[in-house]
Amino acid sequence: MLLKRIWNDRLAALSLTIVGAMLLIGICAPLIAPHPPNEVNMELRYAGASWQYWLGNDHLGRCVLSRLIYGIRPSVLWVLAALIASVFVGTAVGIAAGYWRGRVDAVLMRLCDIMLSFPGYVMTLAVVGMLGPGLTNILIAFVCLKWAWFARVIRTVILPIAEADYVKFAKVLGASQLWIIVRHVLPIALPEVAVIASSAFGSMILQISGLSFLGLGIQAPHAEWGMMMNEARTVMFTRPELMLAPGIVIMVVVSSVNFLSDSLQKALDPKLMVIRSTNGMKHRYQRKEAALQQ
């Protein structure tokens, strides 16, 4: 039903196809890439496009296309994995807060507040700074930072519903409350989680490639889009075309993800569109409104 509505919007369908294709290509990278991504071929340094190397070769004569394809793995797939992990952590915390309530709830939610009051980029830098550069550490930083969003959403959805009649009814029938939450309440929170997750996805892809570009992310010789641009940077002024391909790929993927997120939101709740684009602000603003009304 939801998928069908998104499919009906032509641009959204295109975005979905692009994102889907990216994921698929990334998973099947060894089958699709024409050359091994780390195969050095000094004779072909800075070679232009040819039939054998569609997008040319980089400063070590490596195939740019193959590196792009392998780059999907850290740039998109691992980011997705980190996102899913933070959804899981957030869900667990949210359920815990909604299930036990009381003091547990208060402590967990204050913790969320603190996490949310930190600027994301700075925290990522802090974690990477302490744990040292590397893809794994960035992913850990992402999970540490993003779970609070999901925890909050899940809890907000769970609390009123846990009181609702049909949950009480199920309780009378003898189902355990935890099971009720997992079975009946979680699906209700799913759409909003999907919206937040998808809008975070785009900025995470940008961030991870940015950090790799700065040399804080994945280490050479592994292929990653930000890393590829970092390598192209030394010859930025003489051979700007080397920066072109990874940049365009990032732009296409991120705008598809963002567009998908927008249409997902439109399909789910058109009214929310007004406050969109400012996840943080939305949360803050609502709290403020609530405070005003008291």
């Binding site: 930025m236 002024f237 920066m243 963002n258």
Partner: peptide, 18 residues
């Protein structure tokens, strides 16, 4: 604005600088 927000800052910076 939609396209520009999806653009990596360092890439844009490099292009402009170039």
């Amino acid at each position: 604005s939609f396209l520009l927000t999806a653009m990596p800052a360092y890439w844009l910076a490099a292009l402009l600088a170039w």
